[in-house]
Lab assay of single mutants.
Amino acid sequence: DEFHFHWNGRDIRVRGDSEELRRLIEAIKRGELSEEEIERAIEILER
């Protein structure tokens, strides 16, 4: 699976399928994380 979302003017695409990944992306979409937490998560996910 590939998750695709927009954040902070960026087009983010992440491959993978796990419950943890889904929860993280939902939290990002709901605005539950700080900008710094989101940046760090995206860096890890894009590897």
Rank of each mutant, 00 (worst) to 15 (best):
D1T: 09
D1R: 04
E2F: 11
E2P: 04
E2H: 15
E2A: 05
E2V: 10
F3A: 01
F3Y: 13
F3W: 13
F3C: 04
H4N: 05
H4K: 04
H4M: 10
F5E: 00
F5T: 00
H6W: 08
W7C: 00
W7D: 00
W7L: 03
W7I: 02
W7A: 01
W7S: 00
N8C: 06
G9S: 02
G9W: 01
G9V: 00
R10G: 00
R10Y: 01
R10L: 03
D11M: 15
D11K: 15
D11F: 15
D11C: 14
D11A: 15
D11E: 14
I12D: 00
I12P: 00
R13L: 14
R13I: 15
R13Q: 09
V14D: 01
V14Q: 01
V14A: 04
G16M: 04
G16V: 14
D17M: 06
S18D: 07
S18T: 14
S18K: 06
S18R: 08
E19L: 14
E19K: 11
E19G: 07
E19C: 05
E20T: 13
E20C: 13
L21N: 15
L21I: 12
L21V: 10
L21S: 12
R22K: 09
R22H: 07
R22P: 02
R22E: 04
R23I: 12
R23W: 12
R23G: 08
R23H: 08
L24C: 03
L24V: 05
L24G: 00
L24D: 00
I25P: 00
I25N: 03
I25Y: 15
I25E: 03
E26V: 13
E26Y: 14
E26H: 15
E26W: 14
A27Y: 15
A27E: 07
I28D: 01
I28Y: 13
I28H: 02
K29C: 04
K29N: 10
K29A: 08
R30L: 10
R30V: 06
R30W: 09
R30M: 11
R30K: 12
G31R: 05
G31A: 07
G31M: 06
G31I: 03
E32H: 10
E32Q: 11
E32W: 13
L33W: 12
L33S: 04
L33M: 12
L33D: 02
L33K: 04
L33V: 06
S34T: 13
S34D: 09
E35M: 12
E35R: 12
E35T: 13
E36Q: 13
E36K: 12
E37H: 05
E37V: 04
E37T: 04
I38Q: 03
I38V: 11
I38P: 00
I38R: 02
E39M: 10
E39Y: 13
R40T: 08
R40I: 08
A41P: 00
A41C: 04
A41E: 05
A41G: 04
I42W: 05
I42Y: 04
I42K: 01
I42G: 01
E43K: 09
E43N: 10
I44T: 11
I44E: 10
I44K: 11
L45W: 10
L45A: 03
L45P: 01
L45K: 01
L45Y: 07
E46L: 14
E46S: 07
R47F: 10
R47N: 13
R47H: 13
